[in-house]
Amino acid sequence: MKKMVVLGCALGMFLSTAVFASPESGALLQKYQAAGAGKADPEKGKLDWTRVVVVDGEKMSCATCHTSDFSKDGKHHVTGKAIGPMSARVNQERYTSMKKMEKWFKRNCMDTWGRECTAQEKTDFLIFMLTQ
């Protein structure tokens, strides 16, 4: 009986955080761990999401293009082209290709922060995004 309660609590906690993890995102998190990342911190990811850095005279943050509403389309800062929602709940294509995730992490960190993100920063971002 006690075991059941513990199990139930664990399940409840899991559901309440509602992480929309995919096998690919799991594999990517493992890769970052191997590259030296510590524990994933979604709160840090959330803070970083709106952190503004001036790159080439333009104020940039993740939210500049993606907005902070993960259920809605974003918009490319120069071309205005629509960017699909970041939430895996509404956009099932998200976080299903390691190659794509790595490609966009690289490009977008360069464009937004003027440098590549560390394994830790990407871990925090990914965990934060997967809970949205």
């Binding site: 080439d56 120069v78 190659k99 490609k103 690289k106 490009r107 977008n108 360069m110 464009d111």
Partner: peptide, 12 residues
């Protein structure tokens, strides 16, 4: 492509 009209558009 690393600086494609101001954006990073690198490809593998």
């Amino acid at each position: 492509l690393a600086d494609h009209f101001g954006d990073n558009a690198e490809l593998d």
